[in-house]
Amino acid sequence: MIINNLKLIREKKKISQSELAALLEVSRQTINGIEKNKYNPSLQLALKIAYYLNTPLEDIFQWQ
């Protein structure tokens, strides 16, 4: 199972779901689904999230 800290990191950086979704060219619902662990992002999307949040990938997504 993958645990993610996306919501915590996104809120710490004061970025809304809508703003992050626009940067990543995905829907706000996609961001919401990832934050709620409804599904895991593709590797490409995970890397883009880490890039736009300027945060190491392993700080956002962790195996458990």
Results as ranks from 00 to 15, higher is better:
R28P: 15
S18I: 15
N40C: 08
Q62I: 10
L47Y: 12
E25V: 09
S18T: 13
Y51G: 08
A21E: 03
A50Q: 05
D59C: 08
Q44L: 10
S18Q: 14
T55G: 02
L6P: 00
P41D: 01
A50I: 03
Y39E: 12
S27C: 05
L24E: 00
I9W: 06
Q64R: 09
Q64N: 12
A22R: 13
K14V: 05
A21R: 03
K7N: 06
K12C: 09
E25P: 07
I49H: 00
I31A: 02
D59V: 09
L53R: 00
Q17N: 04
S18R: 11
E19N: 10
Q44N: 08
S16N: 09
E11W: 06
S42Y: 04
I60N: 00
N37D: 09
I9L: 09
Y52D: 02
L43N: 08
E35M: 01
L47P: 01
I34Y: 04
L23F: 15
I60S: 01
S27G: 09
K38G: 07
Y39L: 14
R10L: 05
M1Y: 06
I34T: 02
Q29E: 15
R28I: 15
Q64I: 07
I34N: 00
L47I: 14
T30D: 11
K7Q: 14
D59E: 15
P56D: 10
E25Y: 10
Q64V: 11
R10W: 02
I34W: 06
I3N: 06
L57V: 12
I2H: 09
K48E: 07
Q44D: 15
E19T: 12
E25L: 12
N37S: 09
N5G: 03
F61C: 02
Q44T: 13
M1W: 06
A46D: 00
K14W: 06
N54H: 11
L57C: 05
E11F: 05
L47E: 15
K48I: 04
L43A: 09
L47V: 13
L8R: 14
K36H: 14
L57P: 04
I9E: 06
I15V: 15
L8M: 11
A46R: 06
L53N: 00
L8G: 09
E19L: 09
N5M: 04
L43P: 15
N4R: 02
K48C: 09
S16R: 08
A46Q: 08
I34C: 02
E58V: 08
N54M: 08
N32E: 15
P56H: 06
A46N: 02
V26D: 03
N5T: 04
Y39R: 11
L47M: 13
S27Y: 03
N4S: 04
Q62D: 05
K12R: 15
N4L: 03
E19S: 09
F61V: 02
M1I: 12
I31T: 01
N32Y: 10
K7Y: 07
T30P: 01
R28A: 15
N40G: 15
L24R: 01
K36T: 15
S42E: 08
I3D: 05
Q44I: 09
L45I: 07
F61G: 01
P56W: 03
N40I: 09
P41L: 07
L53V: 04
I9R: 04
I31S: 00
D59I: 07
L20T: 00
Y52S: 08
Y51T: 13
A21W: 02
L20H: 00
D59A: 12
I49L: 07
S18V: 14
L23M: 15
E11I: 12
E19Q: 12
K48D: 08
K36M: 15
Q62E: 10
L24G: 03
W63Q: 05
Y51C: 08
E11K: 08
Q17P: 05
L8E: 14
K14G: 14
L47T: 15
L8K: 14
T30A: 09
L6R: 00
I3P: 05
L20R: 00
N32W: 11
L20F: 08
N32C: 08
S16M: 06
A22M: 10
K13F: 07
E58F: 10
L45G: 02
T55H: 08
S16Y: 04
I60F: 03
I31H: 00
E58D: 14
I31W: 02
S42H: 06
L24N: 03
I2A: 11
L57K: 03
I60W: 03
V26L: 06
M1F: 07
W63M: 05
Q44P: 11
D59Q: 12
N32T: 11
K36Y: 10
E11H: 08
L57E: 02
I49S: 02
E11A: 08
E35S: 01
